[in-house]
Amino acid sequence: MIKKRRDSENVPILDLKNGQESLASRISRKSSSISTNKEEFEIHPDFGTGNILRLKTGRLCVNISKIHLTKDLHFLPKETPGFLQLFFILSGEKIFRTANNQEYSLESMQACMIQKTFEKEVRILADKILKEIQIAVPLDYLKDYDVFKNEAGIEEEIILLPIHEQAFSILEDIQENDFREQADVILLRARILELIAILLKTHTKNASNDLSATPDHILKKLSHIKKTILSNLRTNFSLEDLAMESGLNAHTLNNEFKRVFGCSINEFSISQKMEKARQDLENTNKMIYQIAEEVGYKNATHFSAAFKRKYRCTPRQFRNRL
């Protein structure tokens, strides 16, 4: 998503571009070694609170961050030639600015894939807790795949994609595994390859989705329905309700919505309800039954079952992990 952001002039910028230090080593301090391949870093109080878990095997590196900054953090990223960079934002926001001053905002439940080091500046906003998984994959690991044989394989500077349920499930596995055994390391590499495949497949599907085939007046109606759902997550609209709201018949509305946005209206509605519930579980002290009601579930058991289908744990289990 491309957005205009609040003014960042006169804000100190950490320059990591040409040095040996990583961002983690600048804003945190090592607190423990969980295993041979896994270390934990605690955010320095001058920057905020939280921690960064680092998984490293050979040149493959995974950083799992949960941080709450006291002020916006601006930094020039370290050069990473020969690596594919993957960013998965589970909550919070991270902003990339390119050399031509174009800004890209990576928000909650969005992924980003970068094959070239092109960023001029990266910003992490202080008003939101950032939960992120960042993976640096050596291109040598991908030499057998045509799309990565040279830097022309991916044309875009940066690819932004939603984190779908299949990818989220893999990210959950990566967070929960200590990777103490050699077999675990093999599994980690396999799971990361699977993540890359999912991102590429999603990107290819999005690129082939020609929105020019949809008349402007239909696109406006679809956008209106999407906003209606997002603004009324407490309400359980029927397809007929939304068809009447849009002025389209139910069959056309659902088919066009799925073609343009990649999911059915029901799938989109449930996904957004669960995302809102997840954010409330993480960032508020609301009772679970209150959260359920606010996303349209009068029965907490039904809400818990829907949440578990998406996140593979109950709302209570999710909150206890925080």
Results as ranks from 00 to 15, higher is better:
I192Q: 07
I192H: 06
I192T: 07
E194V: 00
I196G: 05
I196C: 09
I196F: 07
A197E: 15
A197F: 13
L200A: 03
L200V: 06
K201I: 08
T204G: 14
K205H: 13
A207R: 14
S208I: 06
L211C: 06
L211R: 10
T214K: 01
T214G: 01
P215V: 02
D216N: 05
I218V: 14
L219E: 02
L219V: 01
K220I: 07
K220T: 09
K221A: 07
L222P: 00
L222E: 01
L222G: 00
S223W: 08
I225R: 01
K227P: 00
T228S: 10
T228A: 10
I229Q: 03
L230W: 04
N232Q: 08
R234L: 11
R234Y: 15
T235D: 08
T235E: 14
N236I: 11
N236P: 10
F237E: 01
F237C: 02
S238I: 05
L239W: 02
E240F: 03
E240A: 12
D241L: 03
D241V: 04
L242Y: 00
M244Y: 06
M244H: 08
S246W: 01
G247T: 04
G247W: 03
G247S: 06
A250D: 10
A250C: 09
L253S: 01
N254R: 11
N254M: 01
N255K: 15
E256A: 09
F257N: 00
R259V: 00
R259K: 15
V260F: 05
F261Y: 15
F261W: 08
F261R: 02
C263W: 05
S264V: 08
F268E: 04
I270A: 04
I270M: 12
I270C: 02
S271D: 14
S271E: 14
M274K: 08
K276M: 11
A277F: 04
Q279V: 09
Q279E: 15
Q279H: 13
D280P: 00
E282T: 14
E282L: 15
N285Q: 12
I288K: 01
I288L: 10
I288P: 00
I288C: 03
I288E: 05
I288Y: 02
I288F: 04
Q290T: 11
A292G: 05
E293Y: 07
E294Q: 12
V295G: 03
G296E: 06
G296S: 07
Y297W: 09
T301K: 08
H302I: 11
